[in-house]
Design a protein around this nucleic acid. Structure first.
Lengths: 328, 328
DNA sequence: TCCATCAGCGTAAACGTTTACGTTGATGCT
DNA sequence: AGCATCAACGTAAACGTTTACGCTGATGGA
């Protein structure tokens, strides 16, 4: 590939001058600028950012580590990140850490080797080894839609109060036997807090919760199907369910339909995430939202200001919101 | 950040030796390897891939350019790409080219400056300027879910025969008044070919097509809603519709329900894409599939073999398939 | 006329690696 | 003893930039 040296010899100037016009730094005549620019165009010259980054020790790359889970909000979060990244002249490089983040340490190391200037880890819960590794990094890291208990900053909604609000919403609409479907009980970030919020809401409204009303799962569509079948068999059948994801909510709604129950008349359901399928469901799904795009955007903003200022990043709880549609 | 030189002075060897053990190249004793490795760990050394890439003039990065369109298959295609990329020790760097690829030239330039070794452009149609730019690139480029008429290789399904098969499927199931909903008539890649396939299928089965049965749109959910309302008002109302995307299909199904029509009894619908929502729809949506994950995976495979061999990439038509569910 | 100033440009070092090539000492063989 | 061989390492150049610093000639002012 052509280098700066090629265009320098073509135009009879030094590489320093070429570099200067390529970076609009001034210190050259209008005439030489035109010569250089047309020469560069002619030989199809593209500057080598790797070399520049090496010299400046600033690669203008931010890293993104995602789980392999086939989630519908994947695109939103990536777009949020990439949008504000590119606006600040950063490129983003993306990796997957396996279904449950098995591969996370390697991903972090890779990012360090690539000399990213900031790192975002989305929707993966960290074990102690990774937390240690991250503490020793020289660039800022921020978690999105997950959290840490060792000081690594994160951006997420408050799962517990979001869950609290969701079930309270059901209660306010007259439901007394409300169930929860889909939470992974091993998941201390998105699982347990949501059932805790659910429990608290029931408690605060003096409603009993039967143990069969808590049907755990994996946040998946299938979890919703299983849960609904289980609920259906109950003698004291719930009349509303808080699904811990939109996928799960659709599973609930579909099998409710198969079972001859009408949503929301026979059974109300509220979802979680407010992905694009929520409005496409039938009936349209009422859901509490996680603002994925905004989360990604905010993560990059925090990262860039941290990079520029050297200041440490503060965690932030984003406010959720219930999007009322027609499933309750 | 610590460099190779730091660990060299720490252990009393030269940087060449450090480099050798870091790359498992042999030519050192077991003793020094251990010294070096533990020293590296101690000072938290990460090799600088940018510097290495500069020297080796191989960055092991492949570029991915996506549209900004909020599509549900975004995640699948990215995962397909990243999975086989990382398996081959490539990182992937991702950019968005705006809603309709407005920004595409800049994106390509950025990729060239970052010295990607291969480039994937997904789901964006190229204008002449970009095609020219791409022709002059020194690294291989492959298009995914879009095509080119100037020799740039692509991977996609055959939209026209896929559309043909979809409407034939409806016809075989006894429908005679089949409509098409959602195609963008400006889109010569995903729009026109699909209505052409639709028309051909109708023609081959001696079925008349009324002009009102072709309801154009933007592949969106809303397009489906509009189309269904329009169909409903017709005196000769269609009894089946081929939706040009799953989103559109859901729009059709939902408003059909609102209008008191039952799917598939009163009106059958077949989707396109077979995204994850297809199985989550109610009733589950029969759809012709685009294998997004596989498309991404295949793109990277072609890219890596092209990089290694220098050979030119051949376009490939992936076979679509109809996933039969319950909407027809 | 002389000097200061400055636009316009060149020189060279540095960024952190990789790697061709050279060097050293030990070992084995005759 | 003499030599070849080889394991184990060091030296230094190179990759393509950026940038501090220095230089030159023209210009203007006194």
């Amino acid at each position: 590939m052509p280098t700066i040296k090629d265009v320098a010899t073509m135009t009879g100037v030094s590489i320093a001058t070429v570099s200067r016009v390529l970076n609009n730094q001034g210190g050259y005549s209008e005439e030489t600028r035109e010569k250089i620019e047309s020469a560069a165009r002619e030989i199809n010259y593209y500057r080598n950012k790797m070399a520049a980054s090496l010299k400046k020790s600033s690669a203008r790359i931010i890293g993104l580590i995602m789980p392999n889970a086939p989630t519908l909000f994947y695109g939103d979060i990536v777009e949020g990140i990439e949008t504000v990244a590119s606006r600040n002249n950063y490129s983003v490089i993306i990796t997957h850490a396996g279904e449950d983040g098995t591969n996370l340490m390697d991903c972090v190391s890779l990012m360090a080797e690539r000399r990213v200037e900031g790192l975002i880890i989305a929707s993966i819960s960290l074990d102690e080894a990774v937390e240690n590794q991250i503490q020793n990094l020289v660039f800022p890291v921020v978690l999105v839609s997950t959290k840490s208990n060792s000081g690594i900053p994160y951006i997420k909604v408050d799962d517990q109060t979001a869950a609290y609000d969701a079930t309270t919403y059901l209660i306010k609409h007259g439901h007394r036997a409300v169930a929860i479907a889909g939470p992974n009980m091993q998941d201390t970030i998105a699982g347990l807090p949501r059932v805790a919020g659910y429990r608290q809401a029931m408690l605060d409204h003096n409603l009993p919760v039967e143990s069969e009303w808590i049907h755990s799962g994996t946040f998946s569509f299938e979890s919703g199907i299983e849960a609904m079948h289980a609920f259906f068999r109950l003698v004291h059948r719930p009349d509303a369910v808080f699904a811990v994801s939109d996928d799960t909510a659709l599973g609930i709604m579909n099998t409710a339909g198969d079972l001859g129950l009408r949503v929301p008349d026979d059974i109300a359901v509220i979802g979680y995430d407010n992905t694009r399928v929520a409005e496409m469901a039938n009936p349209a799904l009422t859901a509490v939202s996680q603002p994925f795009f905004q989360m990604g955007a905010k993560a990059v903003q925090k990262l860039t200001t941290a990079i520029d200022s050297g200041q440490v990043i503060e965690s932030e709880i984003l406010k959720h919101r219930i999007f009322e549609r027609r499933s309750v």
